[in-house]
Design a protein around this nucleic acid. Structure first.
Lengths: 207, 207
DNA sequence: TATTATCCATACATTGGTGTATGTAAAAGG
DNA sequence: CCTTTTACATACACCAATGTATGGATAATA
């Protein structure tokens, strides 16, 4: 067969990553061979081994396409007045995250990372999950501490505990949804649950 | 070698299950061979294949030792007055669950099911997780509906949403703890988080 | 006590997957 | 236009794991 141009090669690489997402999600990472991925992309293992060193390398490249740190979500909103309304910042950032998660690529890759892969090679999925959770948790606690200083939190509610409650609730929702995304929309249910929880934690209007 | 007595054979079976727990948790289910499990129990694959048909059969037997349905926890408390205090029933049942999860066997097997195995053979871990989550969620919602009827829930708080919030929060805590149980005690942090959340959802004392 | 079934160890055949080596035709680059 | 490199396909050697077949020694049991 003829050699492909650079652009075509890039397309091939993306196609291999797309195929990896689909097959990983369906069969699990451990049970899918590189042969299955290659055939699913109408390629051979030769193409796969040219673009990636092995399965672990392919896996990391797949993750690289769906990075979504919590802080960036807040910054993307681009509303400077949110500094004075930390609870609203949490709300909008979470909604932005929900929306992004409903894109097939984000949903699939996160589902693979959390529910469809084990340790293999030099890949430790739990370490990656820990990193992401730490980032999100730390930010939420910080925002809650800030909210408490501004008197936005219900009296007597420890701000750290408030942040950890949010972290736990969002994490549980996240895991539950990724387990079977067809049961409900994370954007719809997430919005309702988040608003309810924030309402419980918010200081009642003065007067 | 000599044939073992029935009691010795039972001990062998348990030893194989214990070994499976430890190796599964350390290496992941997919990456551990039956040979590794057998050697870790000072046995050979011969013993393993005599007691279990294959890895999937061994896996199911391992799960069988740690069943913990939510309703049983409530019944085990054996306090009939809890019918009139559904929020307290939730609280005590969760605390009982936390305590049980700190036993190595429960912790290990649940960690394996949730974080260290993929689909294999006729085993679908996600389906099992779904079953357990459904049980717990349904019960929590029911208890919250009951609490609302008794006027124990904060005014304006939808009882179904309250139950789903609890479900999400507990699930998130559960997953987070199983990911790395050395970071904190689920009994301690779970108690604090649960009490905080219940306090937020409880109707303020009249008057 | 003779027989049978049990409990396991050992040995073997088979297979699916990996990594690499080699082939090759065209695109890049001068 | 010529050479080199690229972007794969094909082929091969290797290994680890599985399942089963067989062997053997004793507990169970009648």
């Amino acid at each position: 067969m003829a050699r492909r141009t650079k652009a075509e090669a890039a397309v091939t690489r993306e196609a291999l990553l797309d195929a990896a997402e689909e097959v990983f999600l369906e069969k699990g990472v451990a049970r899918t061979s590189l042969e299955q991925i290659a055939r699913h992309a109408d390629m051979t293992r030769g193409a796969l081994y040219w673009h990636f060193r092995n399965k672990a390398d392919l896996f990391q490249a797949m993750l690289q396409r769906v990075r979504m740190p919590f802080q960036e979500l807040v910054e993307e909103i681009g509303d400077p007045s949110l500094v004075e309304r930390p609870l609203e910042a949490i709300r909008l950032a979470c909604l932005k995250g929900f929306e992004r998660l409903e894109q097939p690529r984000y949903r699939r890759v996160h589902a693979i990372l959390i529910h469809h892969c084990e340790v293999f090679g030099d890949i430790d999925p739990l370490a990656m999950q820990n990193e992401m959770a730490e980032e999100a948790c730390g930010a939420l606690v910080d925002y809650c501490v800030c909210a408490a200083r501004l008197g936005h939190l219900r009296q007597g509610l420890d701000p750290t505990l408030a942040g950890e409650l949010l972290q736990a609730m969002l994490g549980g929702l996240f895991h539950d949804w990724l387990r079977n995304h067809e049961r409900f929309s994370i954007l719809e249910r997430g919005t309702v649950l988040l608003d309810t929880q924030l309402e419980l934690m918010r200081a009642p209007p003065a007067g």
